[in-house]
């Protein structure tokens, strides 16, 4: 199993190199020259959106690469990592987005290469729902608890606090020999 994954990875790397070598210079010269590598099309289909460029492309590349994990780093995103492979991966993300692939398609493409591990935002499915729901359940459950506690406190018979406390404080002050600064 380890072997096959390894093989698949090296096959993908070869593909990446081929795609990069073939299309990157082309894409730099003329945006519409290449519609996308055959391997990409086979994995995630045809681009879903119109082609992107300029500031829009830059922004969406940042967004997408912030949610993909740099496979060789320790828990760092492709956007943050200074490592060479993360730079290469970011270029690839930009290339795919420029061709009009949707962010979901780009995620799918990298997931099919590296596995679910590459997604920094876990997919909303199966067991993963556990962590998507837990924070809300904790917070709103706790909020209900706080409301119940405060309600029951407020319903306790009101205590004549100021009277009690003032008398007590006077005694304390008399003993300690200080004066009040109470508002």
């Amino acid at each position: 199993m380890l072997c096959s994954r390894h093989l698949r990875q090296s096959a993908t790397w070869t593909w990446l190199l081929v795609i990069g070598a073939t299309f990157l210079p082309g894409a730099l010269v003329a945006q519409d020259a290449a519609p996308g590598g055959l391997g990409v099309v086979r994995q995630i289909g045809k681009p879903e959106s119109p082609t992107r460029s300029g500031e829009q492309l830059e922004q969406i590349t940042e967004e997408v690469s912030a949610k993909l994990r740099c496979p060789v780093c320790q828990g760092m995103s492709v956007a943050d990592s200074p490592s060479a492979s993360a730079r290469a991966m970011k270029d690839e993300i930009e290339e795919l987005l420029a061709q009009g692939y949707s962010p979901a398609q780009v995620n799918q493409y990298f997931e099919s290469t590296y596995g679910e591990f590459v997604l920094l935002d876990p997919k909303r499915q199966g067991l993963n729902w556990l962590i998507w729901l837990a924070p809300g359940v904790i917070f709103f459950g706790g909020l209900a608890g706080v409301i119940v506690v405060m309600r029951s406190r407020a319903q306790d018979p009101p205590v004549d606090e100021d009277g009690d406390l003032d008398a007590y404080l006077d005694r304390v002050r008399a003993r300690v020999g200080t004066h009040s600064t109470r508002e």
């Binding site: 994990r69 995103s77 596995g115 591990f117 920094l120 935002d121 876990p122 067991l127 962590i131």
Partner: peptide, 15 residues
């Protein structure tokens, strides 16, 4: 997840 599903999953900054 690695223990139960035998899949490596990341939970990162966006989450």
């Amino acid at each position: 997840a690695e223990y139960l599903r035998d899949v490596k999953v990341s939970v990162g900054e966006p989450f």
